[in-house]
């Protein structure tokens, strides 16, 4: 006796990004694509990506698209990145809903204001050759940072451990950004573009807790956590 079964499968499908479903150039575009390898595309499944499409809000629009595709032996099986209205119309035309891929869904008409990211926390050793960038926020590292590693933040950089690599704070130009290090052995420190290399750092600051700040356009290194600046 033959039995039916239900199981999962993973398949690949061609994706066609739809701008205007009634674009007269669409059949020509499909023809060009398919004629290159006709065997490969014969009865191939197609997912319609609607992220740039304002139309396609009625089932007839999808029926028309399916027809156009069928003329090139392509079978529309579903849609992705659709609005709710488009989704309903697609379902009425027997098209499935596929998850969003390739660029996080629809582009919204007005881009949201860039939200500041919360502080980024790193708890594993930062190895040589690694670069970490905390965009729009602070970077906090509670682990050793190796020579040849780079910590970059638009805000402050904190290292509650040994810093042997580079620390770059105020990467977008914030002159009030600071660098806080528990054990200072840095190759280079920089705030808002002004930098100091290891050779230019006074030896009494090495292997100590320090704070680096930009004061009157010069980088100053302060021992410990106190606030009265001394010469770097």
């Amino acid at each position: 006796m033959t039995v039916n079964r239900v199981e999962g499968g993973i398949f690949t499908a061609m994706v066609i990004g739809i701008g205007d479903p009634y674009d007269p150039a669409l059949p020509a575009m499909l023809e060009e694509r398919v004629s290159g390898s006709p065997g490969f595309f014969s009865d191939a499944p197609v997912v319609l990506d609607l992220r740039d499409c304002i139309g396609c809000t009625a089932a007839e629009d999808f029926a028309a698209l399916k027809d156009t595709l069928r003329q090139h032996r392509l079978v529309a099986v579903g849609v992705q990145n659709a609005t709710a209205l488009q989704q309903r119309a697609a379902a009425a035309a027997d098209l499935a809903r596929f998850p969003a891929t390739g660029g996080a869904g629809r582009r919204s008409a007005t881009p949201a204001a860039e939200a500041p990211n919360p502080s980024r926390l790193v708890t594993q050793p930062v190895r040589s050759g690694t670069q970490i960038y905390a965009k729009n926020g602070d970077l906090v590292v509670v682990a050793p940072v190796s020579a040849g590693a780079e910590l970059i933040a638009d805000g402050h950089v904190h290292v509650y451990g040994t810093l042997r690599g580079r620390a770059i704070a105020g990467a977008k130009g914030d002159v009030s950004a600071r660098i806080f290090v528990q054990q200072f052995e840095a190759e280079l420190v920089a705030i808002a573009g002004r930098y100091l290399v290891s050779e230019a750092i006074a030896p009494e600051h090495l292997k100590r807790p320090v704070q680096v700040a930009l004061i009157e356009d010069r980088l100053r290194i302060t021992p410990g956590w106190n606030f009265s600046p001394v010469n770097a």
């Binding site: 594993q124 190895r127 040589s128 050759g129 190796s146 020579a147 040849g148």
Partner: peptide, 12 residues
């Protein structure tokens, strides 16, 4: 030591 540190990072 520096190169070992690098390869450890790459492993991770």
């Amino acid at each position: 030591v520096r190169d070992s540190d690098r390869i450890i990072g790459i492993l991770a």
